[in-house]
C-alpha cells in the first residue's frame, strides 16, 4: 500500500517561522506528526511541527515561470532601496 505523502514544517525555536524541512509517508495526520518528530527533530531541531498533505498544496508550475516571475525582474522601483530618503525625514 502506498501511503500519502506529507510535507513537514519545523519551527526551530520560538519567534521564528516554521520552515519546510522535507517530506515523509504516513497513513494519516496523527502518524505523520509522529513520524516527523522521529525523522526530523531527533537532534533537537524543533519546538513545533506542522504536517500538510502534499496533495493539499497548490503550487505554481514551472511552465508559468515566465508570466509569474519575470515581470518583477525590471521593476527595481519596488525595492525600498530604489528611493533616496531626503535628509531630515524622521520616523522612516
Amino acid at each position: 500500500m502506498i501511503e500519502p505523502l506529507w510535507e513537514v514544517f519545523v519551527r526551530s525555536r520560538r519567534g521564528l517561522s516554521h520552515t519546510h524541512v522535507g517530506s515523509l509517508h504516513a497513513p494519516d495526520a496523527t502518524m505523520a506528526l509522529r513520524n516527523a518528530r522521529d525523522v526530523y527533530t531527533r537532534r533537537q531541531e524543533g519546538v513545533s511541527i506542522w504536517v500538510v498533505r502534499a496533495a493539499d498544496i497548490t503550487a505554481s508550475s514551472p511552465d508559468e515561470k515566465d508570466e509569474f516571475f519575470d515581470p518583477a525582474g525590471d521593476k527595481v522601483y519596488r525595492h525600498p532601496t530604489f528611493y533616496q530618503v531626503p535628509e531630515g525625514v524622521e520616523h522612516l
Partner: peptide, 11 residues
C-alpha cells in the same frame, strides 16, 4: 514496514 518506522524504532 517503512523508512519512517525504521527511524522511529531506531529512536
Amino acid at each position: 514496514p517503512q523508512l519512517e518506522e525504521d527511524v522511529a524504532l531506531g529512536n
